[in-house]
């Protein structure tokens, strides 16, 4: 049995709209072993994105603890958390979220600007990452010169360029046609199989979930086994 890399323990989260409290997650407990490829499914509004954001350290729970790679991230301060994210988490969004003014190369380089790597080292890392996603020939293209599938592959290159501990993906195929979606899923499988990356992926698509080792279902803020 591999080590547990993500430990979510008794986590609750609610949002406030005006003075009304909207409960989103209730007493979630979830363990993700190292090297896992986990799919999170559930109806719209069930709290999938919220849970993923908590694991990725871009949102904070109201209760409970979240341990990722041995750090209780709930206790980290704002800038320590930012630093932790840059080291441990690669985030893939549904709508790619590339900087429109930067080329594929520059987009992938962004997370490396926060490291102490030299310009030459950064270039090597970026080229490696773009090679992995099969876009070495699109290095100087701008996002608007790429297809949706290609944009998502650049986004994945950006997520893996720092060699993070876990990759979190929020409906990475949600905006793509079937063929591009298959390519992205294949890439995720490779990252998991070949590069031993732990992946937590939110999806609506049962075919996407099939690629994962394991699927967890969220319903109204609770995990159902």
């Amino acid at each position: 049995m591999a080590d547990t890399i993500v430990q979510v323990h008794d986590v609750s989260k609610s949002y406030h709209r005006d003075s009304i409290e909207i409960p989103v997650l209730q007493n979630i407990t979830l363990d993700v072993p190292e090297g896992e490829f986990l799919a999170l499914m559930g109806p719209s509004g069930s709290g999938k994105t919220t849970l993923l954001n908590l694991i990725a350290g871009i949102d904070r729970p109201n209760n409970g603890s979240i341990n990722v790679a041995g750090t209780n991230i709930v206790q980290l301060g704002e800038s320590a958390l930012a630093q932790w994210r840059s080291r441990h988490v690669g985030f893939v969004f549904q709508f790619y979220n590339l900087m429109p003014v930067l080329t594929a190369f520059e987009n992938v380089e962004l997370p490396l600007l926060l490291t102490h790597l030299s310009k030459k080292e950064r270039k090597e890392h970026v080229e490696t990452a773009l090679n992995v996603v099969g876009l070495a020939d699109r290095i100087h293209h701008y996002p608007k010169q790429l297809s949706g599938g290609q944009e998502q592959r650049v986004a994945i290159a950006r997520a893996i360029v720092t060699d993070p501990t876990i990759i979190v993906a929020d409906e990475p195929t949600g905006d793509l046609d079937k063929k591009s979606a298959d390519e992205i899923l294949l890439l995720m499988e490779r990252l998991n199989g070949e590069f031993k990356k732990t992946i937590v992926m939110v999806t609506h698509d049962p075919r996407a979930a099939e690629r994962a080792h394991k699927t967890q279902h969220l319903e109204k803020g609770e995990l159902i086994q």
Binding site: A82, F91, L110, P111
Partner: peptide, 8 residues
């Protein structure tokens, strides 16, 4: 997005 990547 930049903050997600670790920008402070």
């Amino acid at each position: 997005v930049l903050k997600t990547l670790g920008f402070t």
